Computed example of a mutant assay.
Amino acid sequence: MTKKVLTVLSEYGYWGEELIGPLHHFDERGYDVVFATPKGRRPHALPPSLEPDSIDPPLGRSVVSVEVAKAARDLDESSRLDNPLDLSTWVPERPYTSDADYLRQLERYNQAAGQQLDERIAEYDAMIIVGGSGPIVDLANNGRIHDIILAFLRAGKPIGAECYGVTCLAFARDWEDRKSIIWGKHVTGHCKEYDYKDGTGFLTTDFNMGPPPYPLEYILRDATGPDGRYHGNFGKEVSVIVDYPFVTGRSTADSFTTGAKMVEVLEHGLRRYGW
């Protein structure tokens, strides 16, 4: 049976290779890849991720090969990403406690974020959150994204995340105990050494945030707790961690391996890798 993967992208820019890497392996296996964004707007690749001559400041070299740049540009200019699912229609926002008729609204929200969302994601075999700077804006602290992650977790289905997309896993948590879903888990994600000191930018705006607004490594170290662990693997070319149901990739160079490990999880029952 054909596997179906929900692929979540930011509307403020994804990193080209971080989509191309997993997509290469999914397409190779004939998976049904369904693209989705927070509000249904078409996603686009961040311009530096399409330029082989663009130098990554922390690494002091280009991180975009000619081949990957072409593949990412071809995809970005194609019609394949034209009509992503609108995830805002999947589940309502959680009501404020100050809202009128709060209790009834909360009951409706819990129904939508629970049983109804479980039924909606039943057709999918896995989900993956593509990285880049964009997720900082519209994915990391997006309650709807968290609810969808929690639904996949309840169903015991694989959840992949790359780079700053891994932040979504750290922040996704049950409203009652508020403990991160990666507590006690092993993960990787953008390490401190890879963070820009300046130049963190987003599509649809010319705002230069400077450095990222939060160091993801620190968040992941705290979110995994004393029995889990963050693996930065700085100095190693690839950092991909599988601690089922999570498959996490550190950054751009880890994208193809992230996709390969997602396939191994789905087809060969891989439960642990990289630690």
Results as ranks from 00 to 15, higher is better:
residue 44 H to W: 05
residue 48 P to A: 05
residue 49 S to N: 04
residue 133 S to T: 11
residue 39 K to E: 09
residue 209 M to L: 11
residue 6 L to H: 04
residue 175 W to E: 12
residue 123 E to W: 01
residue 169 L to C: 12
residue 123 E to Q: 15
residue 40 G to T: 09
residue 100 A to Y: 10
residue 204 T to S: 14
residue 56 D to M: 13
residue 58 P to T: 08
residue 150 L to T: 01
residue 238 V to L: 14
residue 126 A to P: 01
residue 2 T to A: 14
residue 245 P to C: 09
residue 271 R to E: 10
residue 214 Y to M: 13
residue 218 Y to A: 15
residue 46 L to T: 03
residue 100 A to K: 14
residue 21 G to F: 02
residue 82 D to F: 04
residue 11 E to K: 08
residue 138 D to K: 05
residue 226 P to Q: 08
residue 129 I to N: 00
residue 273 Y to Q: 07
residue 72 A to E: 03
residue 228 G to N: 03
residue 166 V to G: 01
residue 101 D to F: 08
residue 157 K to E: 08
residue 216 L to K: 09
residue 138 D to Q: 11
residue 7 T to F: 08
residue 105 Q to P: 00
residue 250 R to V: 09
residue 145 I to N: 03
residue 104 R to E: 13
residue 140 A to Y: 07
residue 219 I to K: 06
residue 192 K to N: 13
residue 243 D to H: 07
residue 128 I to E: 00
residue 195 D to M: 11
residue 274 G to I: 01
residue 272 R to G: 03
residue 42 R to V: 07
residue 249 G to N: 08
residue 183 W to A: 10
residue 249 G to R: 01
residue 113 A to N: 12
residue 234 F to L: 06
residue 64 V to T: 15
residue 155 A to H: 10
residue 112 A to C: 04
residue 75 L to I: 09
residue 48 P to R: 03
residue 209 M to A: 13
residue 274 G to C: 04
residue 12 Y to L: 02
residue 28 E to M: 12
residue 27 D to K: 13
residue 203 L to I: 10
residue 203 L to E: 10
residue 114 G to C: 07
residue 55 I to L: 07
residue 67 E to F: 08
residue 152 F to Q: 02
residue 172 A to V: 05
residue 237 E to V: 14
residue 13 G to A: 06
residue 8 V to P: 00
residue 155 A to M: 05
residue 210 G to P: 11
residue 248 T to C: 06
residue 258 T to L: 12
residue 238 V to H: 10
residue 47 P to Y: 12
residue 105 Q to E: 13
residue 90 W to Q: 02
residue 146 H to W: 11
residue 193 E to P: 00
residue 197 K to N: 13
residue 184 G to T: 07
residue 111 Q to M: 13
residue 172 A to H: 01
residue 198 D to K: 15
residue 22 P to S: 06
residue 114 G to D: 06
residue 125 D to Y: 01
residue 162 E to P: 00
residue 65 S to R: 04
residue 184 G to Y: 02
